[in-house]
Design a protein around this nucleic acid. Structure first.
Lengths: 268, 268
DNA sequence: TGATTTAAAAATGTGCACATTTGGCATGGC
DNA sequence: GCCATGCCAAATGTGCACATTTTTAAATCA
């Protein structure tokens, strides 16, 4: 059932390969010449790893060593190092001193914690939203519901998952508060990593009706009902969480994960 | 009125100076000798700068250049650099490419956004809390109220400010959700920086009664009332926000801010 | 054979030497 | 007198050469 996934738009992978190819080859000989200023390069590597993480291509527990990544992306090791530490600061990677970076292996409690946080947050959001709700918002949400339903009947599971998460994003964004929006995005990105372990997205769509009930309560400006429905919705999702029995050895081969990008040179 | 300030306990400044003094002096001559592994050193510098930020010693807009900081703390520039970038990733410092780090200068809207986020979050927290509230929690909160009142009558403004923030921390912590607790801590730390610009803490205590009303509503398990009171409380605070007319040139002298710590050697 | 020790290889962490960029200041032109 | 331009000092960014630590493998011993 509904695994919430943040709605990222552009896929900067193409950008990554473009920048990787255009790297200069400097004679490594005597020439001490160095400092190259390319801020886009950092960003491209960052986005590539982040996307691999969000798309679940990087399985939980996988080690992200610096040398192979530097080789794959065709950049210096410190470049990789900086990105890895940044992802660690954002709590998207687990950094252990002297032992490198790993994709976090969340416990079941961690997952529950994230879902509960989302549930509590949305209760607050709805409380505030009933004060601001207008026809335009209702229409927007209704249109979104139609999209969800369409994807569901069409059997497009990927779209269903995406739209299901987007619904909740629409709710917070309606408040127009950057802090709250960021917080939700944080929760969603974290939950997306968990999918690979506790895949709650086994059976198909079930959320559309519940989402519709929330919109209905909003239209009626019935705070209590909106919160109650939202709560039930989340508890419903949480109850479906289960440990994936077959941990799936998790392909340790980073090259296959980032294989799409063409580095200066591969392994040799 | 009540400026919320996260309840930090230990003051790792002593630690910082201790580590600064015990730094080795290596002959800077030919000896290429290098790599020293001291994880506590990073942490000490990080905590020192963070605390200066949270305590408002670093005024908004101040430039945090690497060389002087490296000199003050007696560590290498890259050490400082790493810490600065980390603080930037946490959005506590404003990082501009090729132009270094500055203490952020939040707009009035930024401040309002933070307070609004706290307000919305607390609405959600209270919604969940009325389901879990028990005698133990009520007693704990009541005891806290007594502390607040004591500090107020005693005229201890610093304690009042600290306890006022701690009250809201107690509320989220009661849920036992790490994500939510972290989010609140984030909001509080951000608002503390804003105090230096829009000091909302001009007049003394006013929150104790409002805090008491929240506890009262919790005891009665009256969600609507709890949220309403909380909301009023926050709006009350927000309404007192005002732009500080006299921006106070902001002592650009970093040495005076971090003067407490004894480096290997000062300016010379 | 299995567990322990030891040595080699790989990976992480850090200071340093640069290159690049920015900011300030003086000089010169209008 | 004021703005534009060029130059110089300072600050930021980055690759590299190490040291340190961890991990892997081999070798030794019980």
């Amino acid at each position: 059932m509904c695994t919430f996934f943040g709605g990222d738009a552009a896929h900067p992978l193409g950008l990554a390969i473009a920048m990787a190819t255009q790297r200069r080859r400097n004679g490594k000989g005597i020439g001490k010449g160095i400092g190259k200023a390319n801020p886009a390069e950092d960003e491209a590597v960052y986005q590539a790893i982040l996307h691999a993480l969000l798309e679940g291509k990087l399985k939980a527990g996988v080690k992200l060593a610096e040398p192979p990544l530097a080789d794959i992306f065709g950049v210096s090791r410190e470049r990789i190092r900086k990105v890895l530490h940044r992802l660690g600061a954002e709590r998207r990677l687990e950094m252990i001193p002297n032992r490198g970076a790993r994709v976090p292996r969340p416990t079941l409690d961690d997952v529950r914690s994230v879902y509960e946080a989302h549930r509590v947050l949305e209760a607050g959001v709805l409380t505030q939203l009933v004060r601001l709700v207008d026809e335009a918002l209702i229409e927007k949400l209704t249109a979104h519901l139609a999209e969800e339903r369409a994807a569901a009947t069409r059997g497009d599971r990927a779209a269903s998952v995406r739209l299901s998460g987007a619904f909740h994003v629409h709710l917070v964004e309606a408040l127009g508060n950057a802090e709250l929006t960021r917080f939700l995005a944080d929760l969603l990105s974290r939950s997306s990593v968990m999918v690979s372990v506790y895949e709650p997205a086994t059976d198909s769509i079930c959320a559309v009706d519940e989402h519709g009930a929330i919109v209905e309560a909003l239209r009626a400006r019935d705070v209590a009902r909106a919160i109650a429905v939202s709560r039930e919705h989340f508890l419903h999702v949480e109850s479906r969480l289960h440990l994936d029995d077959d941990p799936a050895p998790a392909s340790e081969d980073l090259t296959s994960v980032f294989g799409a990008m063409k580095p200066k040179r591969r392994k040799r």
